[in-house]
């Protein structure tokens, strides 16, 4: 047998095998075909594919299926932003309008300004810290700075700054809200960019108790409430709250606040 015949034989065998298996595969795909809506695949294509679960469904494919088949809201994916919503709208032939993007906002400026009650030695995680005496911070409502939100973020948008408070990088943030869910003290909240004035405190303690542990906490003195020309501020349970619909960002409350805990951007 020469080398040529050997080669031809081998090629014929392998080629034949490939052909047979190929025909079998085609037959199988025709026989066992699962009917899917082609729209679902198109929607999956335009989704970011992070599978973060921020939409409330089990990953991007599940979200796409719900959007197409079960009329889930188109803007359910906070990660993709308006671009994605527009594309999904184009695929499904629906009109969409843009909602303003929201970012997590930290309602605490304590950090190093808040006294520690004891030295904590243990796992570096807020959920673990809070199991021991509500955390080592003097304030039970504030940020503990142990980085549970940092680890919860799938996009690396949060870092702990020098003052032991988390900093949100708005370029990386996709508004998925996982950090807000992870925070055991619920000190993070969503805030729109157009909302200029915020109270940087989450403490419902009485003024005396706040002053004992934190230099810059809200003491519920109601000065801001009395001075607000729009009546946008209410103090409930020793904590000022701003009604963002009424606020005109005049800045009077920021000036008047004796604790300097109201911030204007």
């Amino acid at each position: 047998m020469t080398l040529t015949t050997l080669l031809i034989q081998a090629m014929a065998t392998l080629g034949g095998l490939g052909l047979v298996i190929g025909i079998m595969l085609i037959a199988a795909s025709k026989l066992f075909k699962v009917e899917t809506n082609p729209l679902v695949e198109e929607v999956v294509e335009v989704l970011p594919g992070a599978n973060c679960g921020a939409c409330g469904f089990a990953g991007c494919a599940d979200f796409a299926e719900r959007v197409v088949n079960e009329n889930a809201p188109l803007d359910g994916c906070p990660v993709g932003g308006f671009e994605t919503v527009k594309e999904i709208g184009g695929i499904l032939g629906q009109e969409v309008s843009e909602a303003e993007k929201e970012y997590p906002y930290l309602r605490c400026n304590g950090g190093i300004h808040c006294v520690d009650r004891f030295d904590y030695v243990g796992i570096e995680d807020c959920t673990a810290v809070i199991m021991l005496s509500d955390g080592e911070k003097g304030c039970n409502y504030g940020c503990m700075g142990r980085g549970t939100c940092v680890r919860a973020c799938p996009f690396d948008a949060i870092t702990i700054g020098e003052d032991r408070l988390p900093i949100v990088n708005k370029n990386l943030c996709k508004s998925c809200g996982l950090c807000i869910e992870a925070c055991p003290n619920e000190v993070l909240m969503f805030a729109k960019d157009s909302e200029k004035v915020h109270v940087q405190c989450n403490s419902h303690d009485k003024g005396k108790a706040v002053k004992a542990v934190c230099e810059i906490g809200c003491i519920g003195c109601k000065i801001c409430e009395k001075n607000c020309p729009e009546e946008a501020i209410t103090v409930t349970k020793f904590l000022a709250e701003i009604d963002q619909d009424k606020c005109t960002a005049c800045g009077i409350c920021v000036e008047k606040c004796p604790q300097k805990c109201i911030e204007i951007k």
């Binding site: 030695v121 243990g122 796992i123 959920t127 673990a128 199991m131 021991l132």
Partner: peptide, 13 residues
């Protein structure tokens, strides 16, 4: 290692 704390953390989760 903070064995007990980690175990309690896992248990509470």
């Amino acid at each position: 290692i903070h064995v007990l704390q980690l175990i309690r953390y896992a248990k509470s989760s």
